[in-house]
Simulated scan of single mutants.
Amino acid sequence: MSNMQQYPSLKVSPSSQQGAVLIVVLLFLVLIILAGVIAVKQSTTDLRLATSDQINTLLLQSADNANQSIEQSVNGSSDEDIYDDMLSITGPFGYFMLNPDNSDHEYVFCFRPRDRFFDINRTSVLASSGTILGSNNGYCNPEEPEDYVSSRKASMTQVNISLTSASADTEAFSNYTIGQDSSSVSSQAYTFDINNTAVLPAYADTEVGSKNCFAQTSRVDTVADSENTIGGCMAYAGVPSAVIYEQANVENQSQRTKCVEFGTGGGLLCPLPSS
Rank of each mutant, 00 (worst) to 15 (best):
L98M: 09
A235K: 14
L58A: 01
S129V: 04
N65R: 07
S174N: 02
P100H: 09
C213V: 03
R152S: 12
L47S: 14
S52P: 00
V74A: 03
I38G: 13
S62D: 06
N102S: 11
C140Y: 02
K258F: 13
N196A: 09
A224S: 08
K41W: 02
S254L: 05
D147C: 13
D85L: 05
I178P: 05
S150L: 04
I89C: 12
R152W: 10
N102H: 14
V74E: 06
Y203K: 14
T51P: 06
N195I: 14
A172E: 14
N160C: 06
N212Y: 00
Q17A: 11
S77Q: 01
S187W: 11
S275Q: 15
T197S: 03
C213K: 10
L22M: 02
G267V: 13
G232F: 07
E227R: 15
N75L: 07
S241W: 11
E227D: 15
G209D: 12
C213L: 05
V125L: 00
E144F: 12
I89N: 03
D53V: 14
D84C: 04
D119P: 08
D225S: 14
S155K: 06
S187C: 02
L26D: 12
G76K: 07
M234V: 11
A39S: 09
N175S: 09
N141T: 11
S43E: 08
S88M: 02
C140G: 13
M86W: 00
S174W: 11
G134H: 00
I23C: 04
Y107V: 09
G94C: 13
P14M: 04
N121P: 04
L34W: 02
V243S: 11
S77V: 10
T191G: 02
N102Y: 12
E80M: 07
D193R: 14
N196M: 06
S135N: 05
S165C: 05
E106S: 05
N228S: 14
I23Q: 00
E227F: 14
G179A: 07
C259W: 11
D53A: 15
Y95D: 00
L10C: 06
T229C: 06
E146K: 10
A235F: 13
Y203P: 01
D46N: 12
K211V: 08
A189C: 08
E261K: 14
T44N: 07
L29W: 02
I194F: 04
F109R: 01
Y236D: 15
N136W: 08
L269G: 06
V239E: 12
A127W: 06
V125Y: 09
N99S: 01
L60N: 09
